[in-house]
Every structure is written in C-alpha cells, then in structure tokens.
Amino acid sequence: MQNNKSKYQKMVEKSSPNTNLFLNCLNAFWSGGLICVIGQFITNSLLNFGCDLEISRTLTSIILIFIGILLTGFGIYDEIGKIAGAGSVVPITGFANSVAAPALEFKKEGFIFGVGAKMFIIAGPVIVYSTLTSVLVGIIYYLSK
C-alpha cells in the first residue's frame, strides 16, 4: 500500500501542471516594485512638505494601508493579486488586504464575532509572531548592552 501511494504520488506530480514560475516571478517583480515606487513617491512628497523622515515613512505606510483597504472594498485588490501574486502580498498593502478581506467576508456574522474576530484570521498570526520576535530581539539586545 505504501508502495502504491508513493507510486501514485509520482504519477500525480507528473500529471499536475506546474505554475509558470518565470511569469509569476516577473509579475511579482514589476508589481511589487511598482507598489514600492508609489511608496517612495509618497515618502518623497511628504519630505518635500517638510515632514521628517520617520514621520514620512509612517505616513507612507498608513496611506498605502488605506489604499490597499479601499481597493479591497471595491473588489479590485483580489483581481490585482491574481496577476501580481506575491507582488501584492508582500508589500504592506498585502497586510492591509489580509485584514480587510476577512472583515468584509464575515460581515454577515455580525460586528463582534464576524468582523471583529475574523479580521485577524490572517493578520493575527502576523502580529503574534512579530511581537514574539521583537521581544526576543529585545531580550538579546538588553542582555548584550
């Protein structure tokens, strides 16, 4: 039986079409790059307005998050994602989309257990493990000071 299974596994691998890695990477490259360029443009504009660098970067994130969520609301972000792949997942707009999409999807289950709880089905782990990592970084930094 185990033999059959590994034989079948091989048959499946041979018969299943693969994703077009080159095309996907190309799309991820230009779309992800483009989002970063938009970010750079926002940062530069804010700097020209006289904001300091740190504030400009924070505001850039907030503006990109807003754009990502708005595009999610209009049902456009997932269309972008079909082509862009990781190009629209990895930038901060992808994080925004991962909060907004479940919030929207579970609206019918109410604002507490629907929107409020489901908002974090993807973003929750991100926050949990980044917080954990930051604490570990902090401990090491504190001890090595």
């Binding site: 790059g33 970067r57 930038p91």
Partner: peptide
C-alpha cells in the same frame, strides 16, 4: 528607501 520599508 521604500523598496525595503514598504514590503513586510
């Protein structure tokens, strides 16, 4: 710049 700050 934003090329590193904007990605996650």
């Amino acid at each position: 710049g934003a090329g590193a700050a904007v990605p996650l």
